[in-house]
Design a protein around this nucleic acid. Structure first.
Length: 931
DNA sequence: ACGCTCACG
DNA sequence: GACGTACGTGAGCGTA
């Protein structure tokens, strides 16, 4: 068929596919001879998926070609010898794969095109032009911005990973101009990746501004004198030639000489023989099998493997992802459920459409009952695209979702069946939203945290690699990454099955590896009393969420905007030029180069430090500009991180903000909070504190906050056995004033706030593993003076010095330190040489104190639900030493009394503290008032 | 992707 | 004697 009206040409950016495949996949080599083939494997999977999707698509192309770069040298190097000069050479194990990807393309019976001296982009430009001129449709499968100049007049782009079209609107969003002016903008802005010089100091935004003002690049260069900003004007005049060269470099050549016509690109079905032959030669077992199934053929036998010279190390885990079962009907599911009851446990994993458990939709569930015996139950995979009028259609071959969940519910809730999960809180929340109350559970992430805290992260991929010597299928290979990512429901069931079932399989094997170690490491109590029971407690808190008043935030955002604009104008005025106040680099240059202020210090990256401490020093010397920048920074932080971002986190269904706590995030046992982080809502400045007024209780309810007073200092007093401190805490004295009195000999009734402030800094310093340097910097006093304070402190409280020395010695001997409750925090760097040693020492000194405090509040949180079960109250937030509740107005007193009792007694009965724990409480209509 | 800066305990 | 240094986090932004 000749190419013309009604025809549709696909131009596939082959080079981009190769690099994406290479980076998305772990290194993989052919078993028989070790030839690296990871990128080829990914490339073939992409092409196969492409063909299968076309098969099912009503909009399939009539013509198609895969285009590659011939080599890295092209005619552009004649124009500018540094073009792409800073591109690193392709990795050693990728190079031999380039010719194989051409072979692969031909094996798929797709036209494979490359032309010496031209880039793939030029060939794509040429074919796109030909297609357009012939009156057909052209789709470029690529997300490369350098191709965006081709969009329009029947040519469009499609991001192949996400199936997201890139049309006029997306181009304009990216470049601020239409496709016809993209080249002009690129010429001005340059490109550091391709080493296109452009105009220095001009980025895409400014370039678009200029082009839109003057119409096009030639006019702009001709009338450069008219540019208002003096710096910009000079830049354009000085670099006019360089800009013209840049345009030549970015402008694609749509006249590439080609030895074939569009008609030759007609889509042909692959020849099964040739395709299977190639895949088999590459030893891609899974894909070979899949392709064979599709063509209804038997997979060809694997080529005779030459006898290995040395006996290959046995695959310790023996993962066979092809052995996993996909469950598509009730009878099979019921057989699995019977097996689970028989085993008494099951490893379980859910697949969903998002990471946010409050919005994610359940797509499928995988189960494993023994190593290698795993299955996947697809529930909500879709095909095709949803549109305005409805969602995408359900894929064929799935059980009825509700029926499957109803069948699974009894076993998932059966107290006699242990459910084993990796990061259980996630799946518990997902299933809770389906009305399934998963219990009892074990969590491999938390097992690892109890066993290996401080050694490494506890994500599944890392654990599998480290303890099973197996690299799981990266989720990226299914979903893509970045903007082009798709959601799991869009993944075909065939692809999803090995991935999902493998996760359950790995979870089960990790559990078998970890569970017996708990006792040996003496962390059974840690896991059983401070990790595992926290999962349902946190799940409930996160699902409850906290009510946030959008109007309060939005009004604050507007006020901040106005103030920032005023400050920005003042700052530019003071600087004598406009610059990006938010750029530390530009600010440093203004302060220390242009204005020649003293005190400019460059960090390791060569940029001036412009942190708040530096700016404060400059402001104290009477300089206005740094003072204004400090104000601007504060507002900018409050606006972008809080008043703007928090609004985006308000769940539209609940009207509340649902954070997510990471149980195994911090090495010390603390929780961390993400998406959003509700553990760092401002409080220290008046302006910031107002943000807390947006955290509110609904009508008729009250927010109550209870926090431990000085918990870490109390723990230090207990652990180090400092009588003076203990007595002060027992008698309820002001601990910082007491420290000051002891150290400086000032009687308590003559205490000044300045002396007390210094003593407070020392008290905190001790907890952090004090040093003269650090204290000096914090108090802004000479180092010798700070060292004097520390010496006197240790003289007065020798037990503290002993605690520090003992703790470091313990860490050196055992490789870990412990909290009072037995939590182990590993200190792998403690015997390191060099500057790292100091870090490790201080961390080791701090960890038992911070960690014991973390243990105590964990214990309290676990006991709270039962203690308040009969009250109309909900626990919402934890901020390290504080718990926040929402409660009916009439029950405040009861709640405070109950929770205070739990919190103050949370160390009992495992540890009898020699200091009392004291809890302060506050209440109000919002979080600011509750303090 | 990484460093800087800054919010909290 | 020099080296860098307070402990633990997460998010947004600019830069490369």
């Amino acid at each position: 068929m000749g190419f013309g009206k009604g025809c549709h040409l696909h131009l596939i950016d082959g080079s981009a596919y190769i690099f994406r495949a290479y980076h998305a996949l772990p290194p993989l080599s052919r078993k028989s001879d070790g030839l690296p083939v990871g990128a080829v494997a990914g490339f073939c999977n992409m092409l196969w998926r492409y063909l299968v999707e076309n098969d099912a698509s009503a909009d399939a192309p009539t013509h198609a070609a895969v285009i590659f770069d011939y080599s890295s040298k092209t005619f552009r190097n004649e124009i500018y010898d540094l073009y792409k000069a800073n591109r690193p050479e392709p990795p050693e194990d990728l190079r031999p794969q380039f010719p194989l990807t051409r072979d692969a393309t031909r094996a798929f019976n797709l036209a494979c095109i490359e032309v010496e001296d031209y880039e793939a982009d030029d060939i794509i430009a040429t074919l796109a032009r030909q297609g357009r001129e012939a009156g057909g449709r052209v789709t470029i499968l690529s997300s490369d911005k350098d191709l965006m100049q081709l969009v329009g007049g029947g040519v469009e782009m499609l991001d192949p990973m996400k199936n997201r079209p890139i049309g006029l609107e997306q181009v304009e969003e990216k470049f601020g101009v239409g496709p016809d002016r993209v080249v002009d903008v690129q010429a001005l802005a340059g490109d550091s990746v391709d080493n296109i010089p452009g105009a220095p100091g001009i980025g895409i935004k400014t370039a678009a501004l200029l082009i839109n003002e003057f119409g096009d690049l030639d006019t702009l260069l001709a009338r450069a004198e008219e540019i208002k900003q003096p710096k910009r004007r000079q830049t354009l005049i000085d670099h006019a030639e360089q800009i013209r060269i840049s345009r030549k470099l970015v402008l694609l050549d749509d006249q590439t000489p080609l030895e074939f016509g569009l008609d030759d690109l007609e889509v042909r079905d692959p020849d099964p023989e040739a395709l299977l032959g190639f895949l088999n030669q590459m030893e891609f077992r899974t894909l070979t099998r899949r392709v064979a199934e599709k063509f209804d053929r038997d997979p060809p036998p694997l080529p005779e493997a030459p006898a290995p010279e040395v006996a290959a190390a046995p695959e310790p885990a023996g993962f066979d992802t092809t052995a996993y079962e996909c469950i598509r009907d009730m009878a099979v599911l019921e057989r699995w459920i019977a097996d689970i009851h028989e085993a008494g446990f099951v490893a379980l994993d859910t697949e969903t459409t998002a990471l946010d458990e409050m919005r994610a939709e359940l797509v499928g569930i995988s189960l494993a009952v023994a190593p290698g015996r795993a299955c996947y139950v697809p529930l909500a995979h879709t095909v095709g695209e949803g549109d305005l009028f409805g969602g995408a259609a359900l894929a064929e071959g799935q059980m009825d979702r509700d029926a499957a969940l109803a069948a699974l519910k009894p076993v998932l809730e059966d107290p006699a069946v242990l459910k084993i999960l990796q990061n259980a809180k996630y799946d518990v929340k997902i299933l809770a939203r389906q009305g399934i109350d998963v219990a009892p559970i074990d969590d491999t992430m938390l097992l690892s945290y109890a066993l290996h805290g401080g050694l490494h992260g506890h994500g599944m991929d890392a654990l599998s690699d480290r303890y099973l010597n197996h690299q799981p299928i990266p989720i990226k290979t299914l979903l893509g990454s970045g903007k082009s990512a798709r959601t799991f429901d869009k993944v075909s069931i065939d692809e999803a099955t090995p991935y999902a079932a493998e996760d359950a399989d790995i979870t089960l094997r990790l559990w078998e590896a970890f569970k017996p170690q708990l006792h040996r490491a003496r962390v059974t109590r840690v896991y059983e009393t401070m990790e595992r029971p926290l999962v349902p407690v946190l799940a409930a808190m996160e699902m409850a969420g906290v009510k946030v008043d959008r109007d309060v935030l939005s009004r604050m955002s507007n006020a901040f905007s106005q103030k920032m604009a005023g400050l920005e104008a003042e700052i530019h005025e003071l600087a004598g030029e406009t610059f990006n106040v938010g750029s530390p680099k530009q600010l440093g240059e203004i302060l220390f180069d242009k204005m020649s202020l003293q005190g400019g210090k460059k960090g390791k990256t060569g940029a001036y430090a412009t942190g708040a401490d530096v700016l404060e020093d400059l402001a104290a010397e009477g300089h206005d500009l740094p003072a204004r920048v400090l104000d601007w920074r504060q507002l900018s932080k409050l606006k972008s991180t809080y008043t703007d971002a928090l609004q985006d986190h308000i769940n539209p269904e609940t009207g509340r903000v649902h954070t997510s706590y990471v149980i195994s995030g911090a090495s010390t046992g603390r929780l961390s909070s993400t998406d959003p982080n509700l553990q760092n809502i401002p409080i220290r400045t008046e302006e910031g504190r107002r943000i807390r007024t947006a955290f509110v209780a609904p009508e008729g309810r009250v927010l109550v906050a209870l926090d431990y007073s000085q918990i870490e200092l109390r723990i230090l007093a207990h652990i180090a056995g400092i009588d003076a401190l203990r007595d002060a805490f027992r008698e309820g004295h002001d601990i910082h004033a007491m420290t000051a009195s002891e150290m400086f000999g000032v009687p308590m009734d003559q205490m000044t706030s300045e002396v007390r402030r210094q003593a407070k800094a020392i008290n905190f310093g001790v907890i952090y593993g004090i040093s003269g340097f650090g204290l000096a910097r914090n108090l802004r006093i000479p180092r010798a003076e700070a060292q004097g304070f520390i010496d006197r402190y240790f003289e007065r409280f020798p037990g503290i010095r002993a605690y520090m020395d003992d703790t470091v010695a313990f860490a050196k001997e055992h490789g870990h330190v412990e909290t009072l409750f037995g939590r182990r925090i590993h200190t792998p760097e403690i015997n390191a040489k060099g500057p790292g040693a100091g870090f490790a020492k201080r961390a080791a000194i701090n960890a038992p104190i911070q960690g014991t405090a973390a243990d105590i509040i964990r214990r309290a949180m676990i006991r709270v639900p039962a203690a308040i079960a009969d009250l109309p109250a909900t626990m919402l937030l934890q901020v390290h030493d504080e718990l926040v509740f929402e409660v009916d107005a009439g029950a405040v007193e009861d709640l405070v009394a109950r929770v205070r009792e739990v919190m103050e007694g949370a160390a009992d009965p495992v540890v009898q503290l020699s200091v009392p724990l004291v809890v302060d409480a506050g209440q109000g209509a919002n979080w600011a008032e509750a303090h």
